[in-house]
Design a protein around this nucleic acid. Structure first.
Lengths: 135, 135
DNA sequence: CCTTGACTTCGAGTGCACTCGAAGTCCTAC
DNA sequence: GTAGGACTTCGAGTGCACTCGAAGTCAAGG
């Protein structure tokens, strides 16, 4: 039989076996083919789906809405416009978050600069003390 | 008495009153001063802390580690180097996430382009059908 | 034959970060 | 003086996304 076992898929895709079964249970993944012994065999299509799901998750989409999206995809071509709408929505949320992250990074760097200053001062103080002791 | 009430702080900082009390309980916020009637009065320093906590959260730091950080800050100047280490760690995690986000955005845009193509084709098909019917 | 080990299903448990509700207190306005 | 409403504490509940463990099945190796 062709296809990969769940263990290989888990390693290759960087998710746990538990998560793979969980996604399937939740309907995010179409029912995966089973070998004669009942073991899952993942096709390349399955792998593609998993990659896509990972992308959706990475955009911040919750499982519930991912399921809705998957159902739309399953419903056929007439849902493409809806799917574009959903994706566009999360695209915008992602762009917003990216802007916020840039902002947060800037703030963080300012904090770090401040701390570096404190650190430099702390290193300088002993010298001053030395000098004052010497004086 | 000076300082703001919890309601104003919640509105101004964009967090719920529940969360403000929760943060205080968890030791993320130093014990906030209380008016004679037991109501919390937030000083400007408190507001500054809250803003800082929001920054830490935004970098992806979990509550538990925020508490550790706060404890370090409370412990005095000799912990500055440790604090810099923690902040630097989360700074790097943030930078990594930002890079991943750029990557995700690119993938998402490719998906969207693909879908736009499908949509354009779907709009084109009826014309073709019309033509074939006419022929 | 029987142990080993990886798979299966199923429901239950975990960790996180809130979020809520009950019960009580205290000022304000009528 | 009492009804209303916002505050207080405290412990319990929620939602999310896994994560785990028990119990069973199956194929291969010794």
């Amino acid at each position: 039989m062709d296809g990969m076992g769940i263990d290989d898929v888990a390693v290759q895709m960087g998710v746990s076996k538990h998560t793979l079964r969980y996604y399937e249970r939740e309907g995010l993944l179409p029912p995966v083919a089973k070998a004669a012994n009942g073991h899952r065999r993942y096709t390349d299509d399955d792998l593609g789906w998993i990659r896509f799901l990972q992308l959706l998750r990475a955009t911040g989409m919750p499982i519930r809405e991912m399921k809705e999206f998957v159902d739309l995809a399953h419903a056929g071509e007439h849902t493409v416009a809806d799917r574009v709408a959903v994706l566009t929505h999360y695209r915008e949320a992602l762009v917003t978050r990216m802007a916020q992250d840039r902002d947060h990074l800037e703030h963080l760097d300012r904090k770090l600069e401040y701390y570096e200053g404190v650190l430099a001062a702390a290193n300088a103080v002993p010298e001053d003390i030395t000098r004052s002791v010497r004086a």
